[in-house]
Design a protein around this nucleic acid. Structure first.
Lengths: 256, 256
DNA sequence: CGAACCTTTGATCATACTCAAATGCTGTGG
DNA sequence: CCACAGCATTTGAGTATGATCAAAGGTTCG
């Protein structure tokens, strides 16, 4: 990852101003209904728009949140992909998660408050983020009964997939990890209607996949091409196509 | 792990009754001051005692919380060790964490509410747990300012170590993982005054360590004995002694 | 057009797994 | 109290998965 500078607070203010004049309210946001505050979105769309303090655009690779620094804002990814990554003491990088439109930019914020973050968040593709004051959105997400249930559901989902990933890395072969990875993204994108038939746009580079699954780029390449040769995948133009979902699922579960 | 039955709700009631008559209040609990509610414990010890609904004893290997089932109670480990583990679809088991006295039995509960748990918790040694109603303790932990700050600190610590573990498993050698594992437990136990000089009691078996670090029992044995031969560790009577902490720390960071 | 990075492929190597068997430890029931 | 079952630990030999290193195309972007 090359070093990129974070958005200056100056341009952030400009963005904020721009929103007041031109940005649509959240009522028609295509992603809000897949995010953590969708319940409130339905019952009271005004509330979400009001709370939002800014919408910020990021270029590929730009820093959204920085490891070691606290964040006073809670973000929701409006468009584009982002990665959550952590630099270890020995200098290596690990990618903890890929974020998709509608995902919270670090769900943990609700729990950890303004403590220093144990990881960074960077834009993977050009992306935009809606920002909210952490305390206030946190209150909103826990206040009303239905919304609290939804928040807990998402938290639960988050904990669940994270613990699955941890186990997978420990116990599965490279092929199984890769299959699981591709399927997970497919499922999550399908839920958001962001798939193209049995395929989807696939921006991660192989070094990034490697850093996420604990492999080397060279081996990711070999594993991917093996999946291609077996007629399970196809890749053209940064777009992945799943030819045999059933088989891919089997592989992800270690049945071969 | 052999199958063991969970405490019947009947004996849970008996325990509850027994507490009312004989159990001391939390004022003198040696672990409360290391746990998540220590702030409240200091400012208002009564409150904690009042909230506690039961104290339950568990034998080695007994189920404390079960994967797939929701938990209406929030537990704090009063004594003994416990393990948080997850059974994967392919039947293998992964151990996500070892819990020590003073640890919350699944901190996630505060966030995920009564959703089905993605993992189980079992006693590793004979253990006892103080149980609280989740909703009420959750309110307590977030209500008062100082206590909220402490809660966030712990959440933050929890997220941080968990994400470190995930990265480690992906990127480190078996020796480094094992060194990190032994050091982490040492640090956590030292904080609680549960160490014996430069050593500590070490109940995990090698198959359990293997399931936690993503290794095989045979290889754990070889790695451990290599650390012993290098004069870094000693193990007698389920007690581990760290002879060269400095070197162990280096190994944990992959400097060798 | 060139630089930088991603991807692919090949050859070689080591880490960690598998399988197997021997030994030790612990608790249980006869 | 001993015998035995069941599990944990140790060790060894053989193996394969995935790492390392290197080099050659392909992209993308300035």
């Amino acid at each position: 990852m090359t070093d990129s500078r974070s958005k200056s607070s100056n341009s952030l203010l400009i963005e904020k101003e721009r929103r007041r004049n031109s940005l649509p309210d959240c009522t028609y946001c295509p992603n809000a209904k897949f995010g953590i505050y969708s319940t409130t979105q339905k019952s009271n769309p005004e509330l979400v728009s009001q709370l939002r303090t800014s919408v910020v655009m990021y270029q590929s690779d730009q820093i959204i949140l920085k490891q070691g620094e606290p964040s006073k804002q809670f973000g929701s990814l409006r468009s584009g992909w982002a990665i959550v990554h952590k630099t270890l003491e020995n200098g290596r990088r690990h990618i903890l998660a890929f974020l998709l439109p509608g995902d919270a930019v670090v769900l943990d914020l609700l729990a950890i408050g303004s403590n220093p973050l144990p990881y960074s968040v960077n834009a993977l593709t050009p992306a935009s983020v809606c920002w909210f004051p952490t305390e206030r959105i946190s209150h909103l997400l826990r206040h009303e009964k239905e919304q609290r249930r939804e928040t807990q559901f998402w938290m639960s989902y988050y904990v669940s997939t994270f613990s699955l990933r941890t186990s997978m890395i420990g116990h599965s072969t490279a092929t199984a990890r890769l299959a699981e990875f591709i399927l997970e993204l497919f499922t999550r994108l399908r839920y958001r209607n962001l798939t193209k038939g049995d395929g989807y746009e696939f921006p991660p580079t192989q070094p990034q996949i490697a850093d996420c699954l604990g492999l080397t780029p060279a081996y990711v390449s070999m594993t991917m091409s093996s999946l291609r040769k077996r007629g399970i995948l196809e890749i053209h133009d940064r777009t992945i196509k799943i030819l045999d979902e059933r088989e891919l699922y089997k592989i992800a579960n270690g049945q071969n």
